[in-house]
Design a protein around this nucleic acid. Structure first.
Length: 430
RNA sequence: GGAGAGGUGGCAGAGUGGUCGAAUGUACCUGACUCGAAAUCAGGCGUAGCGUUAUACGCUACCGAGGGUUCGAAUCCCUCCCUCUCCGCCA
């Protein structure tokens, strides 16, 4: 959520910055709502003030045993008008709130202006693509050849966009997650957290998935007492539960920065992506991710994003995988993001780079929604900055390892850093 | 699933229809005393919105959440959520 004060003081400036990401801010409507809100709020508060002082007088008069009919008749009139204006005020503020929650974050100045993926900026390539002297297979062929990847059984159990892993492949998948967690906790200073996979609507609202993107989520209806109904949502990323740990909190200054890492499953309905990446494990309804989350002092967030990006990159470097870092353009960054770097890993079978991590700074956008604050050096509560990034998407990393470490006979050489997690095994073969 | 207790400022904890944004204690800040500290004494000390661009002033809202009664609600009524204790069941 953007700061409403900023919209009030520099509406055109905000509109201009949102325009760079293809969002049209209805400035006339905002202005109109604000004018009405201001008038009604002032009137309401004036009436409340009169009612309060009159009520106080009634109390005093009654204590002395005096007659109060005249003043009570007067305050009744105030009460009648107040009933109307209070309702109007609530409605107006709700309208403003809906409008405000529908506004995406403003991109940083450094974010290249562009309309789509095609305008993203490649920053660097790290490592080099492996050279094969045979026809490479993709991860589906490799996995099925090893007898460890089974989409048919997954389809029977659940449906499309699910997978079953078996044997060495299942273990390799687990090894990757363990390796990532250990690296981030031991070497990068993150605290591991275990969090709920079902969260309430307030948490989804806090990180920006709700109200706008409900169709991307799996909703789990839940009967509450006396016909009440309240939904749980399956998390689409650990970002949601982990970032919401600080919702409605005031963190002491000396505890900053907070750095958390969590390994969780992620659930996405993939509405609107029918027909995209239907083959293999690239785009699933359920996948595992190791997520890095930081809550930092506002002054520190640009540097923290660079560090966080480096932490994610380190995993690929240790795994010996070739990748590139891309700065997303204004038209391609996510709703809540002010700046996003994607890490794209080389997939030889597709002869292309595919996203394996997305690292973003949200500035105070999420913190404002969540009322996540810290106590600054003046002792006053101030909004935190939140950041997160995948470190990394486990399923896609498995795909990358399979494809990049394949041998001519269809076996897979296990990257050295993973071998301790594989009982010393050096190679996956049928 | 059953029974009971409870949710109030950073923390503890009083308040059961009006003078309560809220006693008191504690923590914290300032000052006095002191060479300095401790102890003691005095004062201050919630969040947010609006007027208003303003750490100053005024007004408004906030006592788990939402609704209701009332001229007036932390306090009374209704619904829900959460926490704790005991019993039952259970990975």
């Amino acid at each position: 959520m953007l700061d409403i004060q900023l919209l009030r003081s520099d509406l055109e400036g905000v509109a201009a910055r949102l325009a760079t990401r293809g969002f049209v801010l209805d400035t006339a409507r905002f202005h109109e709502l604000e004018v009405r809100r201001k008038a009604i709020q002032m009137r309401t508060q004036e009436l409340q003030s009169r009612r309060n002082s009159a009520s106080k007088l009634i109390g005093q008069a009654k204590a002395k045993g005096e007659d109060t009919t005249a003043i009570m008749a007067e305050v009744a009139l105030v009460g009648d008008e107040l009933k109307t204006t209070e309702v109007q005020l609530v409605e107006l503020q709700a309208e403003l709130q809906i409008m405000l929650e529908g506004l995406p974050n403003m991109p940083y100045e450094s974010v290249p202006v562009g309309a789509s993926e095609a305008d993203n900026q490649e920053l660097r390539r790290v490592g080099s693509a492996p050279v094969f002297d045979f026809a490479v297979k993709d991860h589906v062929e490799l996995g099925e050849g090893l007898g460890g990847l089974d989409f048919e059984t997954a389809a029977k159990i659940s449906g499309a966009r699910f997978s079953v892993l078996k044997g060495g492949l299942a273990r390799l998948h687990r090894a990757l997650a363990q390796f990532m967690l250990d690296t981030h906790t031991d070497q990068h200073g993150y605290t591991e957290v275990y969090v709920p996979y079902l969260v309430n609507a307030a948490s989804m609202r806090g990180t920006g998935q709700l109200p706008k993107f409900e169709e991307d989520l799996f909703r789990v209806p839940r009967q509450m007492g006396e016909g009440g109904e309240q939904n749980f949502y399956l998390i689409p990323t650990a970002e949601v539960p982990v970032t919401n740990m600080v919702r409605d909190e005031i963190v002491p200054l000396e505890q900053l920065p907070l750095k958390f890492v969590a390994h969780t499953p992620c659930f996405r309905s993939e509405a609107g992506s029918a027909g995209r990446d239907t083959r293999g494990m690239i785009r699933q309804h359920q996948f595992e991710k190791v997520e890095l989350v930081q809550m930092v002092h506002p002054d520190e967030s640009p540097a923290a994003l660079e560090q966080l990006l480096g932490h994610a990159e380190m995993i690929l470097q240790k795994l010996g995988l070739h990748y590139r870092v891309v700065r997303l353009c204004s038209g391609d960054i996510g709703f809540s993001s002010a700046i996003t770097y994607d890490i794209e890993v080389w997939l030889p079978a597709q002869d292309t780079y595919r996203e394996i991590s997305s690292c973003s700074s949200f500035e105070a956008f999420q913190a404002r929604r969540m009322q996540a604050r810290f106590r600054n050096s003046a002792g006053k509560p101030e909004l935190l900055h939140t950041l997160n990034g995948s470190g990394l998407a486990v399923g896609r990393t498995l795909v990358a390892v399979l494809e990049n470490y394949q041998q001519t006979d269809g076996s897979i050489v296990i990257p050295e850093v993973l071998r301790p997690y594989m009982g010393g095994l050096e190679k996956l073969a049928r």
